[in-house]
C-alpha cells in the first residue's frame, strides 16, 4: 500500500537490549543542528566565521584551523562514516547502520566497474572484494548483485558506464530492501520502501532525459521488490507528466509538484522532496525509548545534517547565492 498524507505506522515495542545505544542516541540528538544554524552560515561572508560557527558541532573534531576547505565534503563524509560505524558496533543488530553504510560500497562498485580504485570509506564490503571487481571477479559481492548477474547472464564488461550504473543502482535498492526485511520494524520498512521508490523513479527519469529506451534499461534495473509492476508501467510510459498518477501516494504527489518546477530543477527537486518526506516519516521514531527505529531515525537525521553542511559550506566557498542554497536544505529536526 502506498503511503499518503495522514499515514499511521505502528511502532514496535521497546526493546531493552537497544537501551544502551538509544541512550547514546538521546545524547547525540541533543547535538543535532537546528535549521537556523544553516541559514546563519548561508548569510556569512568569511570562511573564518564558518569555522567558528562549526565549533561545538559533531563535525568539530574533524576540523582544524589549517584544513583546506575544498575537502569539506570528504570531512563531512568521514564524520558520518565514523559515527555510523561506531553506532553499528554498539547495536544488537547492524541492520539500521548498514542501511546507510552500504551506499559507499555501491559507489565503490560503480567506480571499480569504471576501472577506478575505491574512493569511499567501505561499509559492509571489504576493500579486497571491491578490488576483485576491478579484475572482473564478482563472486564475493552481496547476493543482490551477484545473483542477478549469474541468474540473468549479464556481462557488465559489455555495458557502457550509464547502463552498468543502472545495474548497480538496482542491486543497491534490492540490498536496501533485503536489509529492511531483516529487521522487524514496519517504520523502517516503510521508510526504506519509500526511499527505494523515490530513487527508482529519479533514476528512470534521468535515463529518460538521456534519450534512452526505458524498456531496455529496466531489464538491468529490476527486480526491486514490490515495485516491479510499477517500474514496468513507468518504463512503458515515456511521458513523466503521467507518472504521478501511476506512482500515487505521497511520492506521487511530490512528483507532481516537482514536475511544476523549471525543467533543470525538476529531478533534483523531486529527490529533495522524497528525502524530506522520508526524513519526516522517520522522525516519528523519536517517540520510541529503545529500539532499532531510534537508531535508524538518528542516522537519517545525521545524514541530512551532513548533506546540509556540505551544501552550505561548499556553497559559500564557491560563492553560490544564498537564494539558491536555502531552498535546497533538507528537513532538519535538530
Amino acid at each position: 500500500m502506498r503511503l499518503s498524507a495522514g499515514y499511521m505506522i505502528p511502532f514496535i515495542k521497546n526493546r531493552p537490549d537497544w537501551g544502551f545505544v538509544c541512550g547514546r542516541m538521546s545524547a547525540l540528538e541533543g547535538k543535532l543542528l537546528p535549521r537556523e544554524f544553516f541559514t546563519l552560515i548561508i548569510e556569512m561572508h568569511h570562511t573564518e566565521d564558518v569555522y567558528q560557527h562549526l565549533q561545538g558541532t559533531l563535525i568539530e573534531d574533524y576540523l582544524d584551523p589549517g584544513i583546506p576547505w575544498d575537502d569539506f565534503s570528504a570531512i563531512a563524509d568521514e564524520c558520518f562514516y565514523d559515527l555510523a560505524t561506531s553506532i553499528r558496533a554498539e547495536c544488537p543488530s547492524p541492520v539500521p547502520a548498514d542501511l546507510f553504510l552500504i551506499r559507499n560500497d555501491y559507489l565503490n562498485i560503480k567506480s571499480a566497474l569504471s576501472g577506478i580504485d575505491s574512493r569511499f570509506l567501505p561499509g559492509m564490503i571489504r576493500e579486497q572484494t571491491i578490488g576483485a571487481v576491478l579484475d572482473g571477479d564478482y563472486a564475493d559481492l552481496p547476493s543482490p548483485f551477484r545473483d542477478r548477474i549469474t541468474g540473468a547472464g549479464i556481462d557488465l564488461g559489455e555495458l557502457d558506464e550509464s547502463m552498468s550504473d543502472m545495474f548497480v543502482d538496482g542491486a543497491y535498492l534490492r540490498h536496501l530492501l533485503m536489509l529492511a526485511d531483516e529487521i522487524d520494524s514496519p517504520l523502517i520498512r516503510s521508510c526504506v520502501q519509500e526511499r527505494v521508490l523515490g530513487h527508482a523513479v529519479s533514476s528512470l527519469w534521468r535515463v529518460l532525459r538521456q534519450g534512452r529506451d526505458l524498456k531496455q534499461v529496466v531489464d538491468l534495473f529490476l527486480p526491486v521488490g514490490e515495485e516491479n509492476p510499477l517500474i514496468l508501467d513507468l518504463a512503458g510510459t515515456p511521458d513523466p507528466a503521467a507518472w504521478p498518477d501511476l506512482v500515487g501516494g505521497e511520492i506521487g504527489d511530490q512528483l507532481a509538484r516537482a514536475i511544476q518546477m523549471p525543467y533543470d530543477d525538476q529531478i533534483s527537486t523531486f529527490e529533495l522532496k522524497v528525502t524530506n518526506f522520508v526524513l519526516h516519516l522517520s522522525a516519528y521514531a523519536r517517540l520510541e525509548t529503545s529500539g532499532p527505529e531510534r537508531v535508524f531515525a538518528f542516522l537519517m537525521a545525521l545524514e541530512a545534517e551532513m548533506q546540509n553542511l556540505k551544501l552550505v559550506v561548499t556553497g559559500k566557498i564557491n560563492r553560490i547565492h544564498e537564494d539558491i542554497l536555502g531552498p535546497r536544505l533538507r528537513y532538519v529536526y535538530g
Binding site: 531493552p16 537501551g19 538509544c22 541512550g23 547514546r24 542516541m25 538521546s26 545524547a27
Partner: peptide, 18 residues
C-alpha cells in the same frame, strides 16, 4: 534498574558529566 541503566550508560558514553 537494568532498563534504566542501559539507557543511562548510553548517555554517559557521550556525556559523562550527567
Amino acid at each position: 534498574i537494568a532498563i534504566a541503566s542501559h539507557a543511562g550508560a548510553g548517555v554517559m558514553r557521550e556525556k559523562p558529566e550527567l
